[in-house]
Computed example of a mutant assay.
Amino acid sequence: MEITEVVDIAGEASHAASLNRRVAVTVALLATFMGVCKVKDDNIVQGMQQAQADKIDHWSYYQARNVREEVAAATATQLKLAALARPAAEQGAYADAVKKYEALAADQKVKKEQVRAQAEQDQKAYDASNYRDDQFDLSDALLAIAISLLAITTLTGQRWLYWVAMAPTAIGVFFGVAGLAGLPFHPSWIMGLLS
């Protein structure tokens, strides 16, 4: 073996070791970043689940209030009609009962609208959280692709593949930071394709 061959082999081994170190550091940094994003994303998902449960509860309360309102209104109507067939001496008792049920119907209508507003606010909270959850989901997917490309880089020793892996890395980190910081960058068109 000639000296130039030994130098070439040593140089290639040095380049491969350098590339492997670079890949290892990059993967370690990406895994750490993904871990931080995962904690935040899990907290957001818990908030989304709570908002969804609250919305369901509030719409159920809305329906209950609606039924109560309808029953009270129907009862008031029935009492009004029944009063027509009763003697004048009994009309006062019917009028009092009608007022009571009309007041109950009006009260339920107000409470029903309050609950409806709460349910709509729950939906807005869910949508706002989902916006950020999408950012973390895209970040996670892109960083997983980048780590896969980095693994192939180590296996093949192709330096150019490392730089190809930096494209999904940069975009993935961008969306992860956007999710962490609450920045208004949403991958609507990509999420539309994936949903």
Rank of each mutant, 00 (worst) to 15 (best):
Ala93Thr: 07
Ala93Lys: 14
Ala97Ile: 02
Val98Lys: 07
Val98Cys: 01
Lys99Trp: 04
Tyr101Leu: 07
Glu102Ile: 00
Ala106Arg: 11
Asp107Tyr: 06
Lys111Glu: 00
Lys112Tyr: 01
Glu113Trp: 08
Val115Phe: 01
Arg116Asp: 13
Arg116Lys: 15
Gln118Met: 11
Ala119Ser: 02
Glu120His: 01
Glu120Gly: 00
Asp122Lys: 08
Asp122Tyr: 04
Asp122Trp: 06
Gln123Ala: 02
Gln123Lys: 14
Lys124Tyr: 02
Tyr126Asp: 00
Ser129Pro: 00
Asn130Trp: 00
Tyr131Ser: 06
Tyr131Glu: 13
Arg132Lys: 08
Asp133Gly: 02
Asp133Pro: 01
Gln135Asp: 02
Phe136Thr: 01
Leu138Ala: 06
Ser139Phe: 02
Ser139His: 04
Ala141Ile: 08
Ala141Gln: 03
Ala144Trp: 00
Ala144Asn: 11
Ile145Pro: 07
Ala146Phe: 09
Ser148Arg: 03
Ser148Phe: 04
Leu150Trp: 07
Ile152Gln: 09
Ile152Asn: 05
Thr153Gly: 09
Thr154Lys: 13
Gly157Arg: 10
Arg159Lys: 13
Trp160Tyr: 08
Trp160Phe: 15
Trp163Ile: 12
Met166Tyr: 07
Met166Gln: 14
Thr169Cys: 05
Thr169Glu: 08
Thr169His: 02
Thr169Ser: 14
Ala170Lys: 11
Ile171Lys: 02
Val173Met: 02
Val173Pro: 04
Val173Asp: 03
Phe174His: 08
Phe175Gly: 04
Val177Thr: 08
